[in-house]
Amino acid sequence: MGWFNTFINSSLGKKFIMALTGSFLIIFLIIHLIGNITLYFGPDAFNGYVKTLDVIKPLIRIIELVLLSAFIFHIFNGVRLWLENKQARPVTYKVNGSPENTTLFSRTMFVSGSVIFIFLVLHLGTFFWRFNVHDPQQLADSHQYYDIVVGFFQIWWYVLLYVIAMILLGFHLNHGFQSAFQTFGWNHKKYTPLIKKIGTAYAIIMAVGFASMPIYFFFFYGGNQ
């Protein structure tokens, strides 16, 4: 397996890992968003959805494991690339022309990624930890998932952070989507413009889709009374 080590430690291999793990996360986000939409259909729908996931727990655990490794590799490689790439230019330019020759999205991947990471930690702490670790049995019985989520969506700073993170997620995805295709070597005069459009549409749907929930529950939902 020497060749595989060489591959994943090469500059191209690291990019490839980013694209591969990124692609998996892209698919995961679609499923995650579809699931979350049940929030709009009231407590029964959402709690039912969470319970359904409970039923297929072993499968979910496997998926979660894959997901976790995708995140770890994505983040680990991202940080590693960022550090290495910074070293590749020890003296920086006085005048930087990058606003004219690159997009904001592509330039800010590390920043958007870092914010998303902070959000992720918080997100796991608030929801994943509570749902899975912190006395899940009691939660399952009382069907309080919905209440927990909506409860958090009443906290102004949490909503603000959530929305900012989702905007940056959109930034990250807008570049990441088409970037993955490029890294896999799928760049074609005929299809690449379309892929870029799909990527932008996807990024907007994800950002708007996820951000709409805290906004909705903060501004328009009268509470759980």
Binding site: K14, N85, S98, T102, M109, S179
Partner: peptide
């Protein structure tokens, strides 16, 4: 010691 590509495409532009 060159960096790696993050697909910003500044190279193509310049």
């Amino acid at each position: 010691g060159f960096g790696s590509c993050t697909n910003t495409y500044a190279c193509e532009a310049e």
